[in-house]
Design a protein around this nucleic acid. Structure first.
Length: 310
DNA sequence: CGAGTTTGACCAGCGC
DNA sequence: GCGCTGGTCAAACTCG
């Protein structure tokens, strides 16, 4: 099946009668004898009519999609409003091995281990609290990549330094370990591993919170701050450290395209109706891209996707 | 030459 | 205590 739907939001000129006549005129100008090739011409006109009708139908479908999108959007808004946000006031990332040095997490491991000998007053409740703390700081991001790409690199806008790679027991693919190297004292760590279910999906697990602004935000505030903030956002969308975080390349590409589209208009921002129309266009074109859109159709992905474009 | 990556060794936690 | 496993270190290596 040919999935390439050449969709248009606005009814194109083929819907009008005048252009058809112009087409016929063009045939004459091109030296083609319409009377001789009347049959061919008629079939072409019929074909044009058919395509026009099809286009009209598709346009209606898109309009409906757009309306459904609006409804869905408001539903998601309501849904998101109902989700209780967990407090994220605890700032230090703790790991098992560094559990004893809660106040000294940014220092190096050897120092931490040295200190740990003098501070060893753990009990079960403390352990549970810490485990909960770790759990609440962990977020997960799914990124669809080229399955042939073995680099385990997830571009999220931050600067990462790889410090280790390990083959784990239950997973066929190795796990890569990264430190945030944008700020020397940033405690955030990232683990990246391919999904067992889908080798084309990279699962990156973030531990902790960045103690510095996002690099792209720094860029945005220091220089080219045009259009919506979406344009400077990374592909990841994090709505809470308490819940899973999902990334869609589709959302990324859409935001990028949107940024481009906005910038092409001389830096003029699109208003909401324009933006909606733009989204529909992008959705339509994304239908042809397959995997990303399929991913978006899975409910958790879809929610995140909608969060992204809201 | 410096920054980043690779990779084998080491360490700590956990279950038995 | 022992072995398994995940996480980290650091020397060697690569690349711009």
């Amino acid at each position: 099946m040919d999935a390439s739907l050449d969709l248009n939001i606005k009814p194109i000129w083929l819907l009008d009668e005048a252009p058809k006549k112009e087409l016929e005129r063009n045939f004459v100008e091109l030296g083609l004898n319409i009377s001789v090739k009347e049959e061919k011409g008629n079939s072409l006109v019929e074909e044009l009519n058919r395509v026009s009708a099809e286009n009209k139908k598709l346009t209606e479908m898109l309009t409906m999609m757009c309306e459904n999108y609006s409804v869905l959007r408001s539903q998601v808004m309501n849904y998101v409003a109902k989700i209780p946000r967990k407090e994220t006031n605890n700032t230090n990332v703790s790991k098992k091995r560094r559990a004893e040095c809660l106040g000294n997490c940014s220092s190096n491991n050897k120092e931490a281990n040295g200190n740990s000998e003098s501070i060893s007053t753990d009990d079960d409740s403390m352990k549970k609290t810490r485990a909960a703390t770790i759990k609440s700081k962990i977020s997960r991001v799914y990124v669809r990549t080229d399955p042939s790409d073995t680099s385990l690199v997830v571009k999220d806008g931050y600067q990462w330094r790889k410090y280790g790679q390990k083959v784990t027991r239950d997973k066929p693919s190795p796990r890569a370990y990264f430190n945030c190297s944008f700020a020397p004292s940033c405690p955030v760590k990232k683990k990246v591993q391919r999904s067992v279910e889908d080798q084309s999906v990279l699962v990156s697990t973030y531990e902790g919170e960045h103690n510095h602004p996002h690099p792209s935000k720094l860029e945005a505030t220091s220089g080219s701050n045009r259009g919506m903030t979406m344009s400077s956002a990374p592909c990841s969308v994090s709505h809470s450290s308490s819940g899973p975080t999902t990334t869609l390349e589709l959302a990324k590409s859409m935001s990028t395209d949107y940024a481009k589209a906005s910038n092409n208009g001389g830096g003029k921002k699109m208003d909401w109706p324009e933006f909606q129309q733009f989204l529909v266009q992008q959705m339509a074109s994304s239908l042809t891209k397959g995997p990303s859109f399929e991913a978006a159709l899975e409910l958790p992905y879809l929610e995140e996707f909608l969060m992204t474009i809201l």
